[in-house]
Computed example of a mutant assay.
Amino acid sequence: MATKKIKITKETIVSMYMEFTLENNEKPKSVYQFAKLNGFTETEFYNFFGNLESIEKEIYTLFLEKTIELINKDSHYESYDMKSKLLSFYFTFFELLAANRSYVTLSLKEDKNQLKNLMQLSSLRQHFKKFIEEITTDEVRIQQEKIQKYQDKAIQETAWVQFLFTLKFWLEDGSPNFEKTDIFIEKSVKLSFELMNTAPINSLIDFGKFIFKEKMQTNS
């Protein structure tokens, strides 16, 4: 009896790619090899992706899209302020990463050139900045129209840098259930919002103490 052919979709290709990478401890060498090993044609592959690198970028974009889907299922989410929405995003996103930690760690630490590794996040970056734009409220904007668009871009870029710092911390976090990453998220998000106000010094000192303590423990 012939085996029923799996319907090839964007999601199935992503799943196959992640599985291959984890099982072989390396990425596929070519589209031809990858397609043949998984029982579909190159033509089917190119219906969804232009090359293997585009799958890597799509994986992280899918993590973000799933995160937004999940946080929007919370009936109270729309009533949250910007800070609460961002915290909700962070905690949900890093829960998804934790469920796929083996792949994420392998893919983001594969190359000694960190810039090359970060290229996988280029699509995620654009979607993340769009998310920040959507949740940015008038309370955190300067109400001068001439500088507002520049401020919005600054908020998005700052949020992205903060996200990368959080991702780096998570990749190095060996605490149970990544508890230290949760603390990092809470303190860094709190600090970023207080820096928009006039009295950030207490949060800055608190966050600095946390980072210093972690570095001391890492180096001891």
Rank of each mutant, 00 (worst) to 15 (best):
T3C: 03
K5M: 07
E11K: 07
I13Q: 05
V14C: 06
S15G: 11
Y17R: 06
Y17P: 07
F20V: 13
L22R: 11
L22H: 02
P28C: 11
P28Q: 04
P28F: 04
Y32A: 13
N38V: 03
G39C: 06
T43K: 15
N47H: 13
F48Q: 05
G50S: 12
S54P: 12
S54G: 10
K57C: 02
E58Q: 11
Y60W: 00
L62A: 12
L62Q: 14
E65C: 03
E65V: 02
T67L: 03
L70A: 12
L70V: 11
I71K: 01
K73V: 01
H76F: 14
S79A: 14
D81S: 11
M82C: 04
S84V: 08
F91N: 09
F93P: 09
L97D: 01
L97W: 00
A99R: 10
N100D: 04
T105L: 15
T105N: 15
L108N: 01
K109D: 09
E110K: 07
N113F: 05
Q114L: 08
L115Y: 04
N117Q: 08
N117Y: 04
M119S: 13
Q120K: 15
Q120P: 03
L121Y: 08
L124E: 01
F128C: 00
K130E: 13
K130D: 10
I132H: 02
I135N: 00
V140P: 02
V140I: 14
V140F: 02
Q143W: 03
E145I: 12
K146E: 12
I147K: 08
Y150L: 15
I155H: 05
I155Y: 00
A159D: 03
W160L: 15
Q162R: 06
F165I: 05
W170D: 07
L171F: 06
S175G: 09
S175Q: 05
P176R: 00
P176H: 00
F178Q: 15
E179W: 02
D182I: 10
D182L: 10
F184Q: 08
K187P: 06
K187F: 09
K187C: 05
S188Y: 07
K190T: 13
F193T: 05
L195P: 08
N197T: 14
A199L: 14
A199M: 14
A199T: 15
P200V: 06
I201P: 06
I201R: 10
L204F: 12
I205M: 10
D206C: 06
G208C: 10
F210C: 02
F210N: 00
K213P: 09
M216Y: 14
S220L: 12
